[in-house]
Design a protein around this nucleic acid. Structure first.
Lengths: 211, 211
DNA sequence: GTCTATATAAGGATAGAC
DNA sequence: GTCTATCCTTATATAGAC
């Protein structure tokens, strides 16, 4: 990578993360290009068009397309994960429900639909791209840890039964991912609602104290 | 499409489906090319290399790359679905477990891993490709119907409780898809086993008669 | 940091011979 | 049905001016 997450706070850097203004503009242009053309149709030319600058200016900031895409995935993952971690400290069951609603909203707004579409478009490449694969491994690891943490807290507080938190977390994550994936790659409109209902009743049955 | 699923049994057609020998060879070459280079690296040249023939010979059979890919997805879906439908008439709970084991094997052989990798690589394109999207909608519809049918049979036979078969089916499908997807696009090796255990205990709790 | 111009390769697709 | 040869477009990436 040309630049990216190094610590030195050079001029023009924004408050969050380690992205210069120019780099962030390129990331946003990449996002728009992905939305319009999908991963298969993504090119440096397209990104440059969205950016309103020349192709060469992109190569000043990133050594190659691969480099740029790696940086973009890190950028997107960062924003994706922080959107999930916006949680007040409710009771664990409500917190769990809010994580589900965040990742798998019953009525997603256009922005969420787009973010997930872009994300899943990239994730499809992880089948054959090792760098992407590593990054999505980390993303899922962190999501699973978040869910597991909530379940563990519920157990400690005595709100939940003494279940295997890891199993529950993996089940919930897989179900969310599967429904998210289905929503983004098919037109089975009623599926998500059915999964949401079933997932909630599963969690109630699995976690509620009197079994 | 140039040819494909029309009914007339022209010369050179194989027993199953509506594929001529030449077309099936192209499908197999496409499969190998996808395995080696992934969707992003798939080109007519690569397919021709795998086929051992010239690019032009492919254009004799298919009008365009898009045409070829549509045919390939239909071909792959056909083989994928028939692999799931290989079920003897056990009791419904065992049949359910075998569907899960087929789609989400604890120890997948290399062939299954490859089939799923290719499949998910294509599915990633359904985010932006309407034709693919329609085909995956149909695939998921049929998988859901298969699962739902087993649950309904169990209810009729009195083996299962009177649950909402559709909800259970959508839950199971989403969980399977999510775990399959995770396996193909990340390196979280223990996740599938955890999901399998959790899914089995969910089905036991949800379906067993005395609630 | 950004531009124009360009090198070089690969892509999809067709023409016409066999 | 398959081949070679070719057209045209697009892609990644670089050089060198400003």
């Amino acid at each position: 990578m040309t630049d990216g997450c190094d610590g030195d706070a050079a001029d023009g850097e924004t408050t969050d993360g380690g992205w210069t203004d120019a780099e962030e503009e390129i990331m946003l242009a990449t996002y728009r290009a992905l939305l319009e053309h999908g991963y298969a149709g993504l090119s440096i030319s397209r990104i440059a068009d969205e950016l309103g600058k020349s192709k060469a200016s992109i190569y000043y900031h990133y050594d190659s397309k691969e480099d740029l895409l790696g940086a973009f995935l890190a950028y997107a993952a960062d924003r994706f994960q922080s959107s999930v971690l916006t949680e007040a400290d409710d009771d664990p069951r409500a917190e769990l429900e809010r994580v589900v609603e965040t990742l798998l909203p019953l009525r997603p707004d256009e922005e969420m639909r787009q973010i997930q579409a872009v994300f899943l478009g990239l994730r499809g490449q992880a089948v054959t791209n090792g760098t992407f694969r590593e990054q999505f491994t980390e993303i899922d690891d962190q999501l699973a840890a978040t869910i597991r943490g909530i379940v563990e807290r519920g157990i400690e507080e005595g709100t939940f039964r003494d279940v295997d938190a890891d199993r529950v977390a993996e089940h919930v994550l897989a179900t969310i991912n599967g429904a998210m994936y289905g929503r983004a790659t098919s037109d089975r409109e009623t599926a998500v609602a059915a999964v949401r209902v079933s997932l909630s009743s599963y969690l109630d049955a699995e976690l509620r104290r009197q079994s």
